[in-house]
Design a protein around this nucleic acid. Sequence first.
DNA 1: ACGATTTTGTTCTCACGTTCACAAGCTCCT
DNA 2: AGGAGCTTGTGAACGTGAGAACAAAATCGT
Lengths: 210, 210
Amino acid sequence: MARLPVYLRALVALAERGIATCSSEELAAAAGVNSSKLRKDLSYLGSYGTRGVGYDVEYLRYQIAREIGVTEDLPVVIVGIGNLGHALANYSGFTTRGFRIVALLDSDPDRVDEEVGGLAIRGHDDLERIVREENVAIGIIATPAAAAQAVCDRLVAAGVTSILNFAPAVLSVPPGVDVRKVDLSIELQILAYHEQRKALVQPIEGGVTA
Amino acid sequence: MARLPVYLRALVALAERGIATCSSEELAAAAGVNSSKLRKDLSYLGSYGTRGVGYDVEYLRYQIAREIGVTEDLPVVIVGIGNLGHALANYSGFTTRGFRIVALLDSDPDRVDEEVGGLAIRGHDDLERIVREENVAIGIIATPAAAAQAVCDRLVAAGVTSILNFAPAVLSVPPGVDVRKVDLSIELQILAYHEQRKALVQPIEGGVTA
DNA sequence: ACGATTTTGTTCTCACGTTCACAAGCTCCT
DNA sequence: AGGAGCTTGTGAACGTGAGAACAAAATCGT
């Protein structure tokens, strides 16, 4: 399920605060979900809790990490080192949460060998070799929309089977390849939509909708 | 619905390619959804199509933009100008798609007056004033997780009613305030999960799962 | 002017995910 | 040792969203 990483993050946060055990209510609150949903999700992995007591934070943390498959670092490449690629390369959250950035790729020859976040930018020519040599299964696309599909095709051909796409483009991939899309302006537009509805409803009803 | 912005983007792309009219099948393919779903979504807005012909791209584009509420630019503030905040401030997708970044805020006094993306960074002291003067309804939080809730509280108190949160923290807000969360490492972990399942299943079944 | 064709708008069915509610089980206190 | 009090795990109802199928309507050709 897509909520396991959220639970994992909440567990890490609890562990950092020195909390050794927690109930489903507490963990659900930390993760921002319903406690029933949380228990059902966790029961899908197995019975890792103790009735009357709760869950052992450290134990559950490891079990979820194992289920997700981030017990050891997974190699990742980032393609497109523009503003966003820069930020991603410097983002500490990747490296501390089960991922290892093995290469930064950019099509601009002038940028090759430039260092970002302690890693030198490589040209697109090296894409296939790096993916094969490092056994990279996950690629991050942070190129302009026009280049996204071509980059995607090359990544998939080289052996990448999961893609995180920041480019505002719909990627078509063969079966067996997963794509997740993060579109920043679409997120904002969704907020704008709710915003507009609030602006329309509130003056009439005279209050916020609980 | 959360898919309207996707349709809008697809329509803009079609318009840029000089396509004046399109069927639900074509638009659905461009948006990456089912044509039935698309038609149902659009019918919720009204009958903007013509049977036997399809949809007028330009007309539908305006209608969706109006529905979302991005016909004129909405003011937005970005709080936390680290790596990610930098990228967001420079991201052209916001400004070209119905939003106007009116302020960049950072807690670090040394960064104040530094210019990013043509806008000077302001200190947190100016938060309330800017939000009120510019009538800002949407705030973007790109701070570290530890600062996110405090920033969120200040934004909400100043009048912001929609928040896009990039910090890896669960924000609690009063009723009537919308929060959308974008967590980059969670997206990667979701891919890792699918990746692991592929690695487990494929060697046994001997092929990709269609 | 009329029918064939295309495409929308809508209805119906189905499956999934969420939530409530309760039984099973563990701990602690007496 | 035995019961009271929690807390997990799960079974059942509910609501929501997705997909297929069909009817209404507009154009085009004859």
